[in-house]
């Protein structure tokens, strides 16, 4: 019985650690997506993409 309870605690601890790590990776991933979108928006706006020379 003690064994069983101990194993529950063990799994709970490992699960908690994995959840924390996963949450961090997810956050980093979301941020990367946001940055990529921003990068794309900037490239679309850039003069080269519009096909005109920026210098007057």
């Amino acid at each position: 019985m003690v064994e069983r309870v101990a194993l529950d605690y063990t799994f709970a601890a490992y699960a908690a650690v994995f959840v924390i790590l996963f949450a961090f990776v997810l956050r980093v991933h979301m941020k990367t997506r946001m940055l990529m979108q921003e990068l794309k928006a900037l490239e679309d706006q850039s003069p080269k993409a519009r096909g005109r020379d920026p210098s007057p």
């Binding site: 605690y9 490992y14 650690v17 924390i20």
Partner: peptide, 17 residues
């Protein structure tokens, strides 16, 4: 800091047992 959180949580669960 993410790992510190993991250390605190896993340690806490062990301590409870």
């Amino acid at each position: 800091t993410v790992l510190t959180t993991a250390v605190l949580v896993s340690g806490s669960i062990w301590a409870k047992f």
